[in-house]
């Protein structure tokens, strides 16, 4: 925003307006900082003045226990991270396939559509933990040749089944949000259904649903902790073991904080992507 370059220096008036805006921005920041600080102080005083605080502090916030539990929980978190990355990728694939299948037109595809719809209905309905139990304990019990028994593989599969169903609906909403006129324009150019989807509809749909997908990714980050119910020694499980050994709950707090640290970057990324999408859609600078 430097029109002055082309038109000579800005007028006194404009300079004073800019100065005022800057002052106001600075004041707003200051007010925000002070109110945050005040809130923090009040919250701290309320918690620490509680009668049970000294005991809570030693059982939940013991620095020595926290420090000693760090390596084991960290190693467990590495497992969670692997599940997250592999699972996240597979969730996208499964979700996209289910969404595309559901949006197929024509009577010939009816059976496929029904399968996809049934999958989405089923796995959006069942609680994740039940799917984990059924997949984690049921599949190995079949005793089939080559059936994996590692809780890592089975846990990831269960998570992918459930999150794939959620993400399928996000994708489908995105596909349907692209205005029909776009499809009409593409088809009238001679593109077939597949090309229309791949070249015209999906790129626009993806742009719309990216914030929602990132939100699901953040949710996935903490749900990977649920594979501990299958016996996988992840961050949650190792915290549980440490709590059992020491009768001190600090490892839970440590695991919780580590999950939060894991989630913050993606949450900020989601914010940034959303903000960018909004900027692109909006020409007016004032509304």
């Amino acid at each position: 925003m430097t029109p002055g370059v082309a038109l000579g220096a800005p007028s006194e008036l404009e300079l004073s307006r800019r100065a005022w805006r800057q002052r106001r921005a600075r004041r707003s920041t200051l007010v925000a900082l002070l109110s945050t600080l005040l809130f923090g102080v009040v919250a701290y005083l309320v918690v620490t003045s509680a009668p049970g605080w000294p005991r809570v502090r030693t059982t939940f916030f013991s620095p020595t226990v926290a420090w000693e539990s760090m390596p084991e929980i960290g190693a467990g978190l590495w497992l969670n991270l692997q599940v997250l990355l592999v699972g996240g990728f597979l969730v996208m694939v499964v979700g996209l396939l289910a969404a595309l299948t559901r949006s197929l037109r024509g009577p010939a595809f009816a059976p496929l559509r029904i399968v996809a719809t049934a999958y989405v209905d089923l796995f959006r309905g069942i609680p994740l933990i039940i799917v984990l139990y059924l997949v984690g304990f049921g599949f190995p019990a079949l005793g089939l040749q080559g059936m994996p028994t590692s809780p890592f593989v089975l846990g990831t599969a269960a998570i992918v089944l459930v999150y794939g169903a959620y993400v399928a609906e996000v994708f489908r909403a995105g596909i349907e949000s692209v205005h029909p006129s776009q499809r009409a324009a593409a088809r009238s150019l001679g593109l077939n259904h597949r090309q229309t989807m791949r070249i015209v509809v999906l790129p626009q749909a993806l742009r719309t649903v990216t914030p929602a997908l990132l939100n699901d990714f953040v949710a996935l980050q903490k749900d990977v902790g649920l594979i501990s119910v299958l016996g996988a020694v992840d961050a949650v499980r190792s915290a549980q073991i440490l709590v059992g050994q020491s009768f001190n709950f600090t490892p839970y707090v440590v695991a919780g904080l580590l999950f939060v640290l894991l989630a913050i970057p993606s949450a900020r990324l989601a914010d940034a992507v959303t903000a960018r999408a909004r900027r692109r859609q909006q020409s007016g600078s004032l509304l």
Partner: peptide, 19 residues
Amino acid sequence: LETVDDGQVLLDGEDITDP
């Protein structure tokens, strides 16, 4: 709907570009 980068707009004599 847009802020001006310089100059003024007045509505009934009131400077509406004043932030």
